[in-house]
Simulated assay, not measured.
Amino acid sequence: MSQPPPNVLSFASSDSSCGAGSQADIMTIASMGCHPLSVITALTVQDTSGVHDLLPLEPDWVERQTRTILNDIPVHAFKLGLLGSDAIINVIAEILLDYPDIPVVMDPVLASGRGDELTTEIMIKSIRKLLLPRVTLLTPNSLEARRLAFADEVDTASSHSHSLDACASRLLDTGCDFVLITGTHEHTAQVTNSLYTRGRLIRTDNWKRLPHSYHGSGCTLASAIAASIASGQTIIDSVIAAQSYTWGALSAGFQPGLGQYIPDRHFRNSIKEQTTCTQQNIEEQ
């Protein structure tokens, strides 16, 4: 009998367009050679243009889904996405405390690509207090990093002036081990992703900026990292592999509807695609 693949448990909302959310996690995790496990946190009404409505599940349903799976199947990594409500955040925090040895990758979904608010300020405070101390790797884009890092500032507009280095330092102070800030929303010629740990920048990766707007890129990156970690790779190697996979999926992306493009998570990297990144390894662990 062949060895079963590693198992990755995703907490995410359902997305009927299959561009983001649980469906995106499932496709990515499977494409990375792992077995996907899925806990639904919310139902959404969304398409490739944005999220039109959101219905969080009852917290008890989230807990029952999770504990039933955990009692049956060994989990090698958790991936957290859109969590739905403050009560669900509290339930997930309790579950993570019961499984301290399982690495956690979190994509802090605060808004949709077009700006639909998906997370309240109360939820952000709970994420900072209850989840980030348990997170192995946090993968915010630059907008999410600034909002999460300076959620306690009275003047929220001033948070936009903070450097990404300062944001990473504040996020690491909450207790998470690594922060990977993605640069898709920055006004730069290339997309620069920056990896931090222990209060310092240890790696940057520069990627060719693609011409389209994509639905589900953050889900894809975080799920690919979780799958790589579950497969036994180091954090740095997982970040490298997941970025390569995500860029390839985006570059092969397609537009199924009237809105954003969707990553093609079934693509296969070619040698040419793997060399489109300029890497600067600032400090090896």
Rank of each mutant, 00 (worst) to 15 (best):
His160Leu: 14
Lys129Pro: 02
Glu273Ile: 04
Ser159Ile: 07
Lys208Phe: 04
Phe178Pro: 04
Ile73Trp: 05
Ala227Gly: 06
Arg209Ala: 08
Gly115Glu: 03
Ala252Tyr: 09
Gln23Lys: 07
Glu58Thr: 02
Thr48Gln: 14
Leu172Met: 01
Thr234Ser: 15
Thr174Glu: 11
Leu172Gly: 01
Asp47Arg: 03
Arg134Ala: 02
Leu180Pro: 09
Ser228Ala: 07
Gln255Gly: 00
Pro263His: 11
Tyr196Gly: 07
Ala230His: 01
Gly232Met: 02
Ile262Val: 15
Pro133Cys: 10
Asn206Phe: 00
Lys208Pro: 03
Ser22Trp: 03
Ile202Leu: 06
Ile122Trp: 01
Asp15Leu: 06
Met1Ala: 09
Leu70Lys: 05
Glu63Ala: 08
Ile181Glu: 07
Arg147Leu: 02
Ser194Phe: 04
Leu9Arg: 04
Met106Gln: 05
Gly113Gln: 11
Arg134Lys: 06
Leu172Pro: 01
Arg134Phe: 00
Leu55Tyr: 15
Leu130Ser: 09
Gly175Pro: 02
Gln280Phe: 11
Gly21Ala: 13
Gly81Met: 14
Ser251Phe: 09
Ile69Met: 06
Thr220Met: 10
Met1Ser: 11
Val62Glu: 02
Thr28Met: 02
Leu137Val: 08
Asp60Ile: 01
Leu83Pro: 01
Thr204Gln: 15
Ala151Phe: 00
Ser161Gly: 08
Leu37Ala: 12
Asn206Ile: 00
Gln3Ala: 08
Gln3Met: 11
Ala20Lys: 07
Ser38Phe: 06
Asn206Gln: 13
Leu43His: 15
Gly257Arg: 06
Trp247Val: 14
Val8Ile: 04
Ser251Met: 12
Gly115Tyr: 03
Gly259Thr: 13
Ala224Gln: 11
Leu83Val: 03
Ile88Lys: 13
Trp207Gly: 07
Gln243Val: 00
Val135Phe: 14
Pro133Ile: 12
Ile124Gly: 10
Thr184Tyr: 12
Ser10Pro: 01
Trp61Tyr: 10
Pro133Ala: 11
Asp107Asn: 04
Ser49Val: 05
Phe178Glu: 02
